[in-house]
Design a protein around this nucleic acid. Structure first.
Lengths: 187, 187
DNA sequence: TTTAATTGCCGAATTAAGTTCTGGACAAGT
DNA sequence: ACTTGTCCAGAACTTAATTCGGCAATTAAA
């Protein structure tokens, strides 16, 4: 499943806002879990021919639904056994830009600005607690950084990239039991 | 870049603990960014023939260095514009297992247990704030859940999967300037 | 209602890539 | 010096990606 970014000129620069149909949704669902599927297998799964899914995947890429295809590395297996989330309180707001230089570190996996009692939220994966310490030192050396709170991950139960499916029931303004069955308010 | 999980019998069931050499590291580095590269292109990048990199990638997969290959979907582009991190305080400890059922929801991207003043940390991506509300309702309906704190992401500056490189300087017990240059203590 | 244009699909043909196979170079151990 | 094992490149082979042509269905225009 190559990029095929080159194949055929890409005109619709992520402009197409056409809603995803059921086929697109299922294709994305499969690819988000395993992008190594052949178009033939993928077609068999969703009920289309290989050229048909190829065409759709190409469109899904061109319209920005798919950002890319990556190999998911195993942290510990590549020497990064420590995972942590770091909340960073910054003084000003423009100062947050100063933090952006740390994005170059391969240990940094995520940088978000968040609402709430903190300003920046980082996801960091590194070799050891010592390395985390070094990273925090680097943070505190950044102007505008007031304080940090670190949450070191003890174990990970789930970790995946964005999935294609959505649980519509979540929006119905109700509670649900633990089986995921919607419990609609008796109106 | 197919899975090739089937190709040839996989003997070393993630047992091989041989350290990664420079080639492996570079191959992983490239694949973590773009798994759509052909073996020929990859070989050109790292200085090996196509069969050589094929062999190595196969080994890296078999030994668990690579967990899989996935298409990275764009949250907003697939109808999930809200990203949030949720800290969950649970009463007991065995009770955390009760939480695991929410992993079935496609909105859940990560579930970790963490050290610190909270117990569980969730990464959630959903359609709307209303959907997040529904999710929180579901959480509170879970026995053992005492409290939650939500951090809604305003903007994302960096988001990627584990990278192959490590910054060794972080472990050297020192500070670093903002260029990433190590500032060793004058001993 | 009819016609034209567009879209999206399939099956076949073509092209490119994945995969296997062979032999040779190098290093470590006997 | 010889054997053993590892790892690589080049060529051969196999499978998948990609393109092409035509057909059916939908939509727009007439």
């Amino acid at each position: 499943m190559p990029n095929d970014a080159k194949t055929e000129d890409v005109r619709n620069r992520a402009a197409d806002t056409r809603p995803l149909d059921a086929f697109d949704r299922r294709i994305l669902g499969e690819l988000a879990v395993d992008a190594g599927l052949s178009y033939a297998e993928l077609g068999r799964l969703v009920g289309l021919s290989a050229p048909a899914v190829h065409e759709r995947v190409k469109r899904l890429r061109a319209t920005g639904r798919v950002r890319g295809t990556v190999a998911v590395l195993d942290g510990p297996a590549v020497g990064k056994s420590l995972l942590a989330f770091v909340h960073v309180d910054t003084s000003g707001w423009g100062k947050t830009q100063e933090l952006m230089s740390i994005a170059e570190l391969p240990e940094l996996e995520e940088i978000h600005s968040v609402a709430g009692d903190t300003c920046m939220l980082l996801k960091v994966r590194c070799k050891s607690s010592r390395a985390l310490e070094g990273l925090l030192a680097r943070l505190y050396a950044t102007p505008g950084v007031k304080a940090t709170r670190s949450y070191v991950v003890l174990s990970t139960y789930l970790e995946r990239t964005p999935q294609a499916d959505t649980t519509d029931a979540l929006e119905d303004g109700h509670s649900m039991d633990r089986t995921g069955t919607a419990t609609l308010p008796a109106d």
